[in-house]
Nucleic acid binder design. Sequence first.
DNA 1: AATGCGTTAAAAT
DNA 2: TTAACGCATT
Length: 539
Amino acid sequence: MGIKDLLRFMKPYVETAHIKKYAGKRVGIDAYSWLHKGAYSCSMELCLNSGGDKKLQYLNYFMHRINMLRHYKITPVVVFDGGNLPCKGVTEDERHKRRKTNRDQAMLKLKEGNVAGAIELFQRAVSVTPSMARQLIQILKSENIQFVVAPYEADAQLAYLSNLEEEKNGIVAVISEDSDLLAYGCPAVFFKMDAHGNGQEVVLDNVFSCVTRVPSFRHFNKDLFTGMCVLAGCDFLSSVPGIGITKAYNLVSKYRNLDRVLSMLKFEKGDQVPEDYTKSFREAVAVFHHARIYDVSLKRIKHLKPVPEELLQLLDEELDFLGPEILPSLATAIAQGNIDPCTMEAFNVFPSTVNHVSTANIKKISGPFFRQETSTQASKDSSVFAISSSKSKKESTVVEMKQAPDEWKGSLFMEERECLEEAVALQSMLCPSISTRKEKKSQQTEELKVPHNNPFRKRRVEEIEPDEMDSVTELVSEITEVESLEVVCITPESQKSVESKPVKRIELKRDTKEKKVKRSNLESSESNKNTILNFFSPV
DNA sequence: AATGCGTTAAAAT
DNA sequence: TTAACGCATT
C-alpha cells in the first residue's frame, strides 16, 4: 500500500513529534488506518461475526484515540474512503483473495483446536467493511465529531482539506499510515501515531527547502515529487521492473522533467516498459493531482486541483479513470454517510427498517466498479432512492440519483438532497439534545457495570420532552421524500448484540396531506429506553 | 558497488 | 502488516 519504500527513503525528513503541537488546530484522520488497527484487536469475532460486544472493540479503539486528540484540544476531522478507483481494481482483488485464503486457513486451525494459530490468521483476514464505517459514523454523529466520506480516495480528500485554510473547513495536518499522502502533496503528515500521541512527522516544506540533508529535494517541486512516487510504484500503477524509489529519485533529479524521464526510460529499458506505460503514468499522476473530492461548502464534487485544458487534451478528454462523476445530490448523501459508496445502496439505519429500504437500482455501463442493473423491490409506500447512471453529452460517465416513483422523475434533485440533510440535521439535533438534558437520577446507572474510564460509559437517561417534539414536527413537515425516519441512539443493547436498537421512531406519513409525527417506543424494556452512551474517557 | 526484490522476524492489543 | 536482512542482478 502506498508508495513502495518511500518512508524509508524519506527517513532524513522524518521527525518524531507529539500530536499536541497541533493543539487548537483541525487535524484530518484517515479513518481506514485506525479502523484497520482497531479491527486487529477483534479480528476473529469480526470474521466469524460472533462474540457479541467484543466485535465492537474497534469502535472503542477508534474513540479512545479521538478522545486523546480532544484532550489535547485538537479538532479531529475524520475522513472515510468512498468508492474504489478503476485502476485500483487489481490491487483490491488480490487483497480480497489473500484474505479469503487466510480466513479459510484460520477456520481449519480453529477446528484443530489451535485458537492462537487461528487468531494469527484471522488477523490477516480482517477487512474493514462499509458496515463498520457506518457504525463508527453513527457514533461520530452522536459525539459531534466532524467527518466526511470521500467520493473515492480518502487520501485525496485529506490532501484537499490540507490545502484549505482552516476557517474554510481546512486542516493543518493528517494522521495516517499511508505514504500516498505525501504523493498527494499533503503539507504535513503524522505517521505511526500511538495511543499517547507520539508519532513520526514529515513536513513537505522542510523536504523542499532543506539544503543539508541527503537525498536533497532542493530542485524538486511537488509535481516532480509526485512523478518520482509514481515511477517508484504506487497503488494505481506498478513500477517498471528494476525501478525502485532510488532509481526513480535519480531519474527525476537528473532530468527534472517527467516527459524526459519517460523518454529515457523507454530508451534504456525498451522492452521492459509496458506498451501503454506513458498513458498509464499520466493517468496515475493525474489521480494524485486532480482526483475527485467533495467540496463541503459547495456540496458537490470537484477536482483536487482544476484540470488544465492542455492536460485534458493529452488525456483525450477522458477522465473516467478518476472514477465516474457523481452528481451533487448523491455526492452529498455519500459524504454525509447516508449511502454506501460502494454499493450505492442506502444504509440500513436499523435492521428493523429493512423492509422500508429498497435496493438501489444501479445501471452502470462502463467500469467494473458498479454493479449492472440490480433488481428493485421498491414497495410503493416505502420510498427511498433509486440510483441510476447515464452518459452525459460529453460521453463521460455520470452517476446520479433519482427518486423511486415515476411521478417524481426528473424533479428536484435539490429537494431530495435537502431532505437528506434535514434527516441528518434531525438526527444530530435529537441525539446530543437527549444527553444534554438535565439528569433524572436514574436507578439504571448501576445496572450497567461499566468501568468509569470505559469509553462506552453510560452518560444519561432521558426522554425527549414534549416541547422538543414541536420543533421536530416543524423540521419534519418540510421533508417530503423520506417517509420513515428513525432517530439513532446507541443503547446498552448495542454492546451486547450487534444490532443497535431504535429508541425512538418518528414516522412520517407520506400519503396524507399533512405530515404527522408519530412517536412510538419500540422498546418496552425500561432499561434501554432513552439511553445514550458517551465517550468521555480520561486519556 | 548499489539497488531491487524476496523472505523472515516482530510488534501490539 | 511493516521493517530489516540478505541474496541476486545490473
